[in-house]
Amino acid sequence: MTDQPLVARLEALLRDHFEIAPEAVRPDATFRELEIDSLAMAEILAILEDEDGIVLPPTLPGLGGDTTLADGFRIIAEAAAETQGETAGAAR
């Protein structure tokens, strides 16, 4: 089960930051269809780090233009959970 607050956050980024029409932000849409290229994907990851404190690797395996939003959000959420766990572990 993908982290629901994070999904809502990513959907809001696509609508508000990238100005994608709300009706186009569907789970089965691919990033390519929404014109989210590798630069835009890096922007998503930078915003998560800057504003949400979620530090992710610069690239995520399996995340590309043909990835659907549902799969992409899951990959980002899993990577976030992993790095947050590491951060929490380091803190202990």
Binding site: A42, E43, L45, A46, E49, D50, V55, L56
Partner: peptide, 17 residues
């Protein structure tokens, strides 16, 4: 500011473009 703080991953990748 992010550059000075060493928060490199938080810098927008659009900065050059």
């Amino acid at each position: 500011t992010k550059l000075m703080e060493g928060r490199f991953g938080a810098m927008t990748p659009s900065l050059v473009a």
